[in-house]
Design a protein around this nucleic acid. Structure first.
Length: 479
RNA sequence: CGGGGUGUAGCGCAGCCCGGUAGCGCGCUUCGUUCGGGACGAAGAGGUCGGAGGUUCAAAUCCUCUCACCCCGACCA
């Protein structure tokens, strides 16, 4: 027999390769024919759909409604906000020809929708009574990035973008932080992915924003992933698009804005937060299948086993457990065990004639490998409990991992040493200078991920200059 | 845009240096035996060798041009 590679590359060998192997072998996504594009396959899309339905409810619970704006934007719209155009111009795709002829004005394929949305908001807002306007859209956007990676950075990606308009600066700031908190809860409670919330530095903020906030997660190679952002846009877009309203005092004023978004990048974050050398590990709350049943039978025991399996499936569905039965007779049980472990299903139930004789089933937990023999009568209850337990354990495990790989340093030598030999997040004081931030980036490739909300009471010394500084920030190499 | 690589069956690759009948593994189809940690046997199907041009009696192989994708870097809510 020739040596055939089975499974995925080990994380310790080549994390990047591991990631690509998992995405492809677990059938989450595939490369599209155009550079940087991605086909999201049904199993990957099912994860995204779970994200969508949970987030959508959270948006509605915070007062937002959905709408849809066109993907084509007149080129001059983008130029109305100076910082915005500077930030996005290099990466927009532009349509110059359509309908068989050259267009009078080229059309930009949206890299984000602020401009077209604020063009419309101008028509819709005239009084304080029209505010706040709280709209979200689920859409695709296109950014012509030079380097792409499946889910993490693709030429076209799916996301949601919230765009809100407010009468006061205070309200806009509250909205910005409310949505960041929605993202934090989603990441931690559903994706089991611990995140650090904080503010972006001036150089890292969104093009056109007054301030940007983000949630930052640590991947299993200890690199950082910006998993969601929320921007306070101040009056920048209102001024660019002349969106004013009359306040209660009958005075005309520019509207205050926010925007916030998360994308299919979150799927990449999910993969890299929990996976191991066997492949994907999915938290139960967002897994397409929470349980996979592997029936084990021969011809003469098929009916016996499948009857029992069908009963169990009905009971599990009753209990709202997402269950899949792999009754493919072409593949052996051993093959299926490996296959579904690689695809990250949180729990596996094995049921064969021997089990039925004993009135039990074998349950194996994906992330721990723990094996349980459970009486059939107790099975649904056990699995329901495990949905919660596994979810908690995955979060705790990811949190422990992040803490183990977060280092506090107070001088430049240690900073370089830790970054080179240990990696991970570095907590250090920073004097607030963009110049210093830039130097650190150039010398080490580490960037300031955020200025965490969670700040110590006392000040410290800037890790680069030694100056007394009040801000403790998170440095890391990032995706 | 710079550096490196790869285009040959659905996927992964060999063949190219040294021109002469296009091959291997996996997958796929059919049948049978299997089935509790990646089963086995037998019989099959499947190819404009990325594209264009050139050299030659003859090109996957040599030459020229070209296109695409991947990796590293620069760049990047």
């Amino acid at each position: 027999m020739p040596v055939v590679s089975k499974g995925v590359t080990k994380q310790s060998e080549d994390f990047s390769k591991w990631y690509t192997d998992v995405v492809k072998q677990a059938k989450l996504a595939d490369y599209g024919p155009v550079k940087g594009t991605m086909v999201i396959r049904p199993y990957g899309y099912a994860i995204w759909e779970n994200f969508q339905s949970i987030l959508n409810q959270m948006f509605k619970d915070t007062g937002h409604v959905n709408a849809y704006f066109p993907m084509f934007i007149p080129e001059h719209f983008l130029q109305k906000e100076a910082e915005h155009v500077e930030g996005f111009a290099p990466e927009v795709a532009v349509v110059t020809h359509a309908g068989g002829k050259k267009l009078d004005e080229a059309l930009v394929v949206r890299p984000t929708s602020e401009t077209i949305i604020w063009h419309m908001y101008k028509k819709w807002i005239s009084s304080y009574r029209d505010l706040p306007l709280l709209i979200n859209q689920w859409a695709n956007v296109v950014r012509w990035e030079m380097r792409t990676r499946l889910f993490l950075r693709t030429t076209e990606f799916l996301w949601q973008e919230g765009h809100t308009a407010h009468a006061t600066e205070k309200e806009a700031q509250e909205e910005t932080l409310t949505m960041l908190e929605v993202y934090r809860r989603f990441a931690e409670e559903y994706m089991a992915m611990p995140v650090i919330t904080g503010k972006k530095t001036e150089s890292e903020k969104f093009a056109g924003a007054v301030s940007t906030y983000s949630i930052e997660a640590m991947m299993r190679d200890t690199k950082a992933l910006q998993a969601g952002t929320s921007h306070n846009l101040g009056q920048n877009f209102a001024k660019a698009f002349e969106v004013t309203f009359q306040n209660k005092e009958n005075k005309e004023e520019f509207v205050y804005a926010t925007s916030w978004g998360v994308s299919t990048r979150l799927v990449g974050g999910l993969i890299m937060s929990h996976g191991d050398d066997k492949g994907l590990i999915l938290p139960p709350k967002v897994a397409p299948y929470q349980v996979v049943i592997i029936p084990i039978f021969r011809n003469n025991t098929k009916e016996l086993v499948m009857d029992r399996v069908n009963e169990l499936v009905a009971d599990m569905r009753q209990a709202e457990i997402r269950v899949h039965v792999d009754d493919d007779e072409k593949a052996s049980p051993g093959f299926k065990f490996n296959e579904w472990e690689m695809r990250g299903v949180p729990m596996r139930v094995e049921l064969g004639p021997k089990d039925i004789e004993k009135g039990q089933a074998v349950v194996v937990i994906r992330h721990s490998g723990a094996k349980h023999f459970i009486q059939l009568a107790d099975l649904v209850k056990f699995l329901s409990d495990q949905v919660v337990t596994v979810q908690d354990e995955l979060f705790q495990r990811a949190l422990d991992f992040r803490e183990e790989n977060t280092h506090t340093v107070d001088n430049w030598e240690d900073f370089k040493d830790v970054l080179e030999h240990k990696g991970g997040f570095i907590k250090a004081y920073w004097n607030g200078s963009a110049e210093v931030e830039e130097k650190i980036k150039n010398e080490t490739k580490a960037t300031i991920r955020c200025i965490p909300f969670d700040q110590p009471a006392e000040s410290g010394k800037c890790v680069y200059t030694g100056e007394e500084s009040s801000q403790l920030v998170i440095f890391a190499k990032a995706y």
